[in-house]
């Protein structure tokens, strides 16, 4: 199936040459990598991760497409780079159950529940009912000390609690993504990415209306 693929660009001059021109958004993987690194130095940078939540949602709600996944997702690019060019992927087919609807929507619901639990923890700190936990929770279970990245907050400790919680979400999903990148194809994360599932759902609903 794959034999002779390399010659295709030469055979079809209409397609090949234009594709190799990189656009600014092809470098967003740098932003994604920087985000993860910055969280090691100052946890408040975790707030920037909200961009990865709001931009895809806004694009899907306003434009009715998956422009974020298709173009701007730095995390997807990072996986494509590590699994593709760096060869850190077995490039095997993802198991059937992982691409099934029940798993994709199930994971979305699970992700939502965990996200609201994180918001609840944040609320408790804001309300003064709980102390700030200077920890990052990996895979929703393992608490890692992360106090070196906390240098105080200007507004309220709750702001820092949200940062710790949000960074936990981002780091956990990166680890899951790396895991499936190695086992299956580079961007296997895209198959069950909660944001991807949600934006596709929004597009389905929105384009049915029109």
């Amino acid at each position: 199936m794959c034999s002779g693929m390399s010659g295709i660009r030469d055979q079809y001059p209409g397609g090949g040459s234009m594709k190799s021109e990189k656009k600014w958004y092809d470098y967003l993987w740098i932003a994604s990598a920087a985000y993860l690194i910055l969280g090691f130095f100052n946890i408040m940078f975790a707030w920037l991760g909200l961009l990865c939540f709001f931009i895809p949602l806004l694009i899907s709600v306003i434009k009715g497409n998956k422009g974020y996944c298709n173009r701007y997702c730095g995390r997807g690019q990072l996986f494509a780079l590590l699994g593709g060019r760096f060869g850190l992927s077995r490039k095997k087919d993802i198991p059937g159950w992982m691409k099934s609807r029940w798993f994709r929507y199930g994971f979305l619901i699970f992700f939502f529940v965990m996200f609201f639990q994180m918001l609840w923890t944040t609320w408790l700190v804001f309300a003064g009912a709980s102390d700030l936990h200077q920890t990052v929770k990996l895979l929703w279970t393992i608490r890692l000390p992360w106090n070196w990245a906390y240098h105080g907050t200007l507004i309220h400790e709750g702001m820092a609690q949200f940062a710790f919680g949000f960074y936990s979400v981002m780091l956990t999903s990166t680890i899951l993504g790396l895991f499936t990148m190695v086992l299956f194809k580079p961007r296997s994360w895209c198959v069950y990415c909660p944001m991807g599932t949600m934006t596709q759902l929004i597009c389905r609903v929105k384009n049915k209306e029109n």
Binding site: I8, R9, Y12, G14, G15, G16, K19, N65, K66, C69, N70, R71, G76, A80, K99, R104, R187, C190, V191, G196, T197, Q200, C203
Partner: peptide
């Protein structure tokens, strides 16, 4: 299909799109 667009990125003749 999850509409991620990985296919569109690699198509040498822009024949596939989301």
């Amino acid at each position: 299909c999850v509409a991620c667009g990985c296919c569109a990125k690699v198509c040498p003749v822009s024949a596939i799109s989301v």
